[in-house]
Amino acid sequence: MNKTSSVAGAPKQMTFRRSKTRLSDKIIPILLGMCALLSVVTTIGIVYTLLQESIIFFKEVPVWSFLTGTTWSPILPPKEFGVLPLLGGTLLITGIAILFAVPIGLACAIYLNEYAPARVRGVVKPVLEVLAGVPTIVYGYFALEAVTPFLQKIFPDMGIFNALSAGIVVGVMVLPMISSLSEDAMRAVPKTLRHGAYALGATRFEVALKIVLPAALSGVVSSFVLAFSRAIGETMIVTVAAGATPQLTLNPLESIQTMTSYIVQVSMGDVPRGTIEYGTIFAVGLTLFVITFLLNILAQWVARRFREEY
């Protein structure tokens, strides 16, 4: 750095070598790569197991009759393997849950974002997130012990096990997901857009509904799809509260069985390995996997399709 030592007129010579190569620079990408690889390998492993066992099952039961059959009676003769009652049960529960959770979750998000003072939001949001962490078995007994008796006062001929109570409580379970993710999406909408609308004489509600919600739509709709796939996969609540009656019905007051609760039921019993009954676990599991997979693709498509730049 001694200026006088450089030759007069010649520009200063510079090198840009690093004093020492750091080991961490080489190891960290490898470690991170291995973590990423691990999740890929796990997914492949799951698909492989599901496929391998399902193939054995589908050798005995044609895929078509599995997908279109309307009776599910895998253990008791006459044995029938039509998955539609389980699929119907799953969709009934999910439908009730979504009908319950979307309007309330959205209203929560709008309230928290546009109306609640910072103090209230500071309390409510963490509470909502705690609600999301409650073990689902607790929700299951909440449905059975609290919601069902309450609903029976309204619908006296409703049974102990029913789709309505389980569906509503699944809705309660996914509600924090919808309100929290929607609120995040709405919060990301720039303040300047709100100011623009207020300056035109919009009310809070008009700003929330016509400016903030459309601008946050991609995040909001993604939260719906996520909640949907979470509801489809929900197991304990339906096992505890919805019963174990595989039947194709739209009546929410009846007992049903979902794909997940069927898997629980069979896994808990003593079905021998290698039998066709055992194979149903994987066939139903694979069906569930495919549905969830498609929903995730839908979620990504939705997020892109509804993205409003701001």
Partner: peptide
């Protein structure tokens, strides 16, 4: 606000 309009420093068109 309907009678008293406002234009801001940063252009803020709605998306």
């Amino acid at each position: 606000r309907k009678q008293v309009g406002m234009v801001f420093q940063q252009p803020n068109p709605f998306p």
